[in-house]
Amino acid sequence: MADDTTTEAEEEAAATARLEVAVRAAEAALIEFEIAVETFRIEVENFSRLHEQRLGPYYSRLEELDALIAEAVAARTGDPEDERRAREARAAVAPMPGIADLFHGWLDSDGFSPEAYAMLTQQPVQQPPRVRPSDEARKLYRELVRKCHPDLAVDQNERDRRDVFVSRVNQAYARGDEDALRVLADEWERGPRGEEPAWERQDELYARLEWLAERKDLLADAAAALEDSAVGSMLRMAGDDPDGMLEEIAEGLRQRVAEREAELVLLRGDGAE
């Protein structure tokens, strides 16, 4: 009888050990997936901000030139239809203010802008120098997140601590700040160590696996939304050189601006704007 009891206990322990291995593998896979989603999210955000910063002035200039050209045509012809087009073109230059304009760039449709958040948390405001951080920054980021990821903790207080820390890591990575990432890595190594979860029952492990599966589904939805967005689609087309794509678009816009300016000069006849 004792042998049977021992055998059952050993089998249960072995089954629990196998489940724990499965949980650890699922955690590692989930973290890798989340790192991939987060790096892409940061690239989407950086691309969007740099697109506005670098290309916004060209688009604004083109709108102004379109209005000036339409007004020059209307002044020359006096045609009511040309005058209507001129009014529409001028109205497009100064649209009704949106949320971001009303709050002076502090707030947009997604909440506080990165610049506003940085100011509120007394962090330096820095534009990302490039869409995709350097290979070294990517390496440092991945290694650090693998160690400090909140999904590695079960205790809520430890998860909260890790959430705050990972937020700082994400901000440093978004700026491509290799030095800041190294400082954070050193801070993590010198900081407190949360306790590793001790799984005692199979039902705890099954619950953990279910939670990990739900978390993966949420991440998959977030990844799909990013990829289907306008900026996400542009990034996929850009391949390995999103900054090159921005420069290529900028060159095309510069040419369009030059063409519109030349057209305006011809319409006015005197070279004045």
Rank of each mutant, 00 (worst) to 15 (best):
R161E: 05
A180N: 05
L144N: 10
M237C: 00
Q156E: 15
A213V: 02
V169R: 03
H149W: 08
M245D: 00
M234W: 10
W199F: 15
R190M: 14
L218T: 10
R215W: 04
A224N: 03
D241R: 09
P192W: 10
V164D: 12
V166H: 03
R161H: 04
E196K: 15
L218M: 13
R175Y: 08
E189M: 10
G244Y: 06
D217G: 07
A198P: 01
A207M: 08
E178R: 02
V164C: 02
D155W: 02
E189H: 07
S233Y: 00
W199V: 05
P192Y: 09
P242D: 14
Y173S: 03
A222L: 08
A225R: 13
E195M: 12
A153G: 06
L205G: 05
W188A: 13
W188R: 14
A230F: 09
R175I: 05
A172M: 01
R168H: 10
P192S: 13
L209Q: 07
V154Q: 14
R159H: 03
S167K: 12
F165E: 06
G239I: 01
A225V: 05
A230Y: 09
R215P: 02
E227D: 12
G194F: 09
E158W: 11
D240K: 06
W199D: 04
S229W: 03
V164G: 08
G194Y: 08
E178S: 01
D241F: 02
E214W: 07
D240T: 04
L218S: 13
K147R: 15
A174C: 07
W188I: 05
A180G: 04
E210T: 11
D163F: 08
H149C: 04
L235P: 00
A185L: 08
E210I: 09
H149D: 11
Q202F: 03
R175T: 07
D240L: 06
G239H: 00
S233E: 13
P150A: 10
L152F: 09
E195W: 06
L181W: 03
A174I: 04
Y206E: 15
E178V: 06
G191P: 00
R146P: 01
E204D: 14
I249D: 05
G244E: 10
E210Y: 09
W211S: 03
D203N: 08
L184Y: 03
D163S: 11
Q202E: 15
Y206I: 15
A238R: 00
E247F: 03
G176F: 02
E210F: 11
C148F: 01
W199N: 08
R236T: 08
V231E: 14
Q202V: 11
A207S: 13
E247D: 13
D179P: 00
N157P: 00
Q202I: 14
R193I: 09
S167W: 08
D151S: 13
E196Y: 05
E200N: 13
M234Q: 14
A174K: 11
A225C: 03
D186R: 14
E247P: 01
A225K: 14
Y173N: 07
K147H: 09
R161K: 03
A153P: 02
V183H: 12
D179Y: 05
P192A: 09
N157M: 07
N157Y: 06
A207W: 03
D228W: 06
D241M: 06
H149P: 01
R193M: 10
L144D: 12
F165Q: 01
E248R: 10
S167R: 14
N170W: 04
E158M: 09
A198D: 11
L144I: 11
L246P: 00
Q171A: 15
L212D: 00
Q171L: 14
